[in-house]
Amino acid sequence: MSKEPLGFTPAPLDRQATFYVAGHRGLVGSGLWRHLDAEGFTGLVGRTSSELDLKDRPAVFDFFRETKPRYVILAAAKVGGILANDTYPADFLTENLQIQLNVMDAALEQGVERLLFLGSSCIYPKYAEQPINEDSLLTGHLEPTNDAYAVAKIAGIMQVQAVRRQHGLPWISAMPTNLYGPGDNFSPQGSHVLPALIKRYDEAAQAGHEVVTNWGTGAPRREFLHVDDLASASLHLMEHFDGPQQVNVGTGTDVTIKEIAETIGKIVDFRGETEWDTSKPDGTPQKLLDVSKLEAAGWTAQISLEDGLRSTIEWYRGHKASLRT
């Protein structure tokens, strides 16, 4: 017989409790770690992939038995851009399912009190009505270039819901929009649109190039959320929200790719012209999340896009010598 979740009462999490951040070295995980540390959590636990392979089921169970975390945020995942997702769909499906199953099964064995599973807005149908509401899940076909990754993340949502129904634990899921910030992937093969534009315009500005050429028309609209805002939203949801349905996490506003390019060009002091190669595809015209559920839970984004871009570009310039190229 199914159990109702065990009466979660919104309250501050225990700052001294053991708190495992899975994937704490990645873009999302490092943002979570910074925020939780600033919020006074003294029992943060993280392991690099070389220290703990989350695809290794016995090792994951041993880790949970040893550390016995009270709280978990599952931010670890195999991620990549369109090219990587389209080229290696089996890897993206298999590895993400393994990570999720191992971490959540081990957390269940230890009775982890509060777990947040972080997914991605790519779980929604390619042609979902804009802005995308949480109810759009499983109502249409996925974007073919990243459907394997999306299916893995949908499975994670379902696993959280199944644990709630069968075991009564008040675990939750959140689906962030396009993310950026310190620690992003700026490699040509693995980067998403925003870090790719930062790298392109910064290099052009440094070299004194007169022209930067971008794909498409620049007309598609995208929503971007700074990872520090995601970290803030994640803790807020863990302390104030309970429910089986995933929660969208975003800003509720979007901009065109052309506007993003112009802003980045201004920040890096690019003096040349931008051309648009309209023979290349634009992709989905718009991808904007409905964040009314998040706002009803009491949270809204605080970091403006321009401020977030400035800090990200500053971080990139300070670290680019050691970044993947």
Rank of each mutant, 00 (worst) to 15 (best):
T87H: 13
A148G: 04
P89Y: 05
A155I: 03
I154C: 01
L137G: 05
M175L: 15
L97K: 04
N178A: 12
P125I: 02
V79W: 10
G181I: 04
I99A: 01
A174D: 05
L83K: 12
S136Q: 14
I157D: 14
L108P: 06
A152H: 09
G140L: 07
G81F: 06
L169S: 04
R70D: 09
G168H: 04
L108V: 10
A155K: 08
I157M: 13
L74E: 07
I157R: 08
E109N: 12
P89G: 01
A76K: 00
S121R: 12
K68Y: 07
P89K: 06
Q159W: 12
F92E: 03
E134H: 03
A107I: 08
D147Y: 14
V112A: 06
L97T: 06
R114Y: 04
Q130W: 07
V72T: 08
G80V: 05
V112W: 03
P182L: 02
H167R: 10
P69R: 02
M104K: 00
L83A: 14
I154D: 02
T139Y: 10
A150P: 04
S121P: 00
V163C: 12
T145N: 15
V160R: 04
V160T: 11
G156V: 03
H167K: 12
N85D: 11
G81L: 09
A77E: 08
E109M: 13
L142Y: 01
L83T: 10
Q98F: 11
V160D: 01
K153H: 02
G111L: 11
N133E: 13
R114E: 00
T145A: 11
I172E: 00
G111M: 12
M175G: 01
A107K: 04
A128F: 05
L97Y: 08
I157S: 11
A128Y: 03
A76I: 03
D105W: 14
H167C: 07
T177G: 01
C122Y: 13
W171M: 02
D91V: 09
R114L: 00
A148T: 05
S173T: 13
D135S: 15
G181A: 07
T67Q: 14
E134G: 12
D86S: 15
A155D: 04
I132K: 09
F64V: 03
K153P: 02
R65V: 00
A90G: 10
A77I: 07
S120E: 01
I73Q: 07
G119R: 05
Q100D: 14
V72H: 06
A75L: 05
N178I: 07
T139R: 12
N85L: 11
L142T: 02
S121C: 10
L115W: 06
P182W: 02
G156S: 04
Y180P: 01
T177E: 10
D91I: 09
P125F: 04
Q166P: 06
T177A: 09
Q159T: 09
A84M: 06
L169K: 08
S121I: 09
A155C: 13
E134V: 11
A150H: 02
L169R: 11
E134W: 07
P144R: 07
V72N: 09
L118W: 12
D147C: 15
G111R: 08
C122M: 13
L115Y: 01
D147P: 11
A174I: 10
H141Q: 15
R70H: 08
Y127R: 15
F64T: 02
N133K: 15
D105K: 13
G140I: 05
P176A: 01
D105S: 15
C122N: 14
Q130T: 03
G183V: 06
A150E: 01
K78C: 06
P131T: 06
M104T: 08
